[in-house]
Amino acid sequence: MYSTAVEETPDKLQVTAHEQYHAPESLSPSTVLASPLDQFRAWFTQVQGVVREPEAMTLCTASAAGVPSARVVLFKQLDPRGFVFYTNYTSRKSQELRANAHAALAFYWREVHKQVRVVGRVEQVARAESDAYFRSRPVGSRLGAWASRQSAVVADGEVQARVDELKRRFEADENDPTANVPLPEFWGGWRVVPDEIEFWLGKPSRLHDRVRYLRVEGSREDAPEWKIDRLAP
């Protein structure tokens, strides 16, 4: 059981202590792989079955004016270009990504005292790729994607009413995996193409191991070169 020491007064809630991190391995530029994508793949593979929902990641976007917002979404794919997630293209996150085509990701795997931070440019995933992923989702999730005008204000019961209407429209039963619920025009994937990736390993006394990869300016996007540095905790 994890515990945190907290002091509470009528006007303040203050965290006064946190248990120590004790990652058994070490992390340095000499121990990581040459590619941060390969390093991420290795870490992500290692935490399967150890970390609950390791695909959960914080996505940070910003408006054209630079106002940030963050939320937890699900990582769905790593490919040679970057990190892919899927969402409604009319949502707040998508509107901000169109206005400011940069994003940051953060994975935190508490059980193994590891964290990965990604900063990069974004691009929309090809529709054929989004369609293939969409058709792999449960029927209920596909209906939900159609029914939700994500981030819009709705009345109580409005979304469920849309789901019921869509079931009739597509003649779809949530328990029938063969139901034909096609990909909506307003839904698909975004890819974060990284310019910077940092790997963090929790150590006692906050003396954490941090290794950062920076894309070498001018290197090819399909075969980037990386500068690897150790950062102070």
Rank of each mutant, 00 (worst) to 15 (best):
S205Q: 14
E185W: 01
L166V: 03
D209I: 07
L166E: 02
K203V: 05
V193H: 07
W200S: 01
V192F: 12
I197N: 06
G189H: 12
P177G: 02
A179K: 12
W190P: 09
L207Q: 14
D195L: 03
D173R: 13
V181S: 04
D173F: 00
T178N: 13
T178G: 04
G189A: 11
V193S: 01
R169V: 02
V192P: 08
E196A: 09
W200G: 05
L166G: 09
R212L: 09
N175W: 06
K203H: 07
D176F: 10
L201D: 09
G189D: 12
T178F: 06
D195T: 12
D209C: 05
N180K: 14
V211R: 04
G202W: 11
P194K: 05
K167A: 08
G189N: 12
F170L: 02
R206C: 02
I197L: 15
R212A: 07
S205H: 15
W190M: 02
G189C: 06
E171D: 14
D173T: 03
F170R: 08
E174K: 02
D209V: 10
N180G: 00
R168D: 14
F199W: 12
R206L: 11
V192G: 01
D176V: 09
V181H: 06
D195S: 12
W187L: 08
W200T: 00
T178C: 05
R191W: 00
E198W: 09
F199G: 03
L183C: 04
V211D: 00
R169Q: 14
D195R: 10
K167N: 05
D195N: 12
V181R: 04
R210C: 06
P184V: 12
L166D: 04
V193R: 01
F186A: 14
W187Q: 02
G188D: 11
V193W: 07
K167M: 15
W187F: 13
A172N: 03
R210T: 07
T178P: 03
D195Y: 03
E196F: 01
W190F: 15
P182S: 05
W190C: 07
V193Y: 00
G202V: 10
I197C: 06
A179D: 06
W187Y: 09
